[in-house]
Design a protein around this nucleic acid. Structure first.
Lengths: 104, 104
DNA sequence: AAATCACATACGCTTGCGCTTATATACGCT
DNA sequence: AGCGTATATAAGCGCAAGCGTATGTGATTT
């Protein structure tokens, strides 16, 4: 069995981020996605897609012998939720910076 | 030489996320952070802190023989910037869902 | 039904991560 | 100076990630 990957690990891989980027534009077949990563073989891309599936970042629907991949809407929200409390850090920091620039 | 890690990989490690969480509350000495991860040895935590330093997520200032670690304000912004274009996906999705619930 | 196409899985290999133990470095105290 | 304390680095190891080659599976075509 494949070790259950979490969203953070899934997104840490550059090729997988590339795939997500393409799927953000529009749905694509597995074949199109394979072609988009010419340095990788078809099985390699297929495995990346499997990881993205398993963490709920993408979903597949069959279309004849093709498989159409699509971005799952709320997949990345888990990362966004994690970042949220930290966001206030750089917001405060920027605010303080502006304050400083105005007062000099 | 240590392979130059990027922010995504840095944050993919659960222990490193744990460290960031503690530093979000307040600055801490390396020793405090070591104590916060009882399952790890001191060198292990030290290496995690090094990774977080190298990707710009934390910074250190010396205090006598102690080293005080602090969250760097804009470190996670790179991840946030990456997520931004995707955010509209689940926002649209939620909007459509609400629409659907109201109209039924 | 046989061949072909689109995609997934199996297997074996290499490389890099994260860990521990051992050691170095640097500061503080007596 | 000598010793404990605080932290970082070195060396070595096990394991899992990611890759390619080979093969399986199901749909399409002829």
């Amino acid at each position: 069995m494949l070790s259950a990957v979490d969203v953070f690990e899934a997104v840490a891989e550059p090729n997988r981020r590339h795939l997500l980027g393409l799927l953000a534009e529009r749905d694509r077949t597995a074949g199109e996605l394979v072609d988009s990563l010419p340095t990788l073989t078809q099985p390699a891309v297929s495995r990346h897609l499997r990881v993205l599936r398993e963490v709920g970042l993408v979903e597949v629907r069959p279309d004849g012998q093709r498989r159409i991949y699509a971005l799952k809407p709320d997949g990345l929200q888990r990362i966004d939720d994690w970042i949220t409390p930290y966001r206030r850090f750089w917001r405060d920091h920027l605010a303080a910076l502006h304050q400083h620039l105005e007062n000099r």
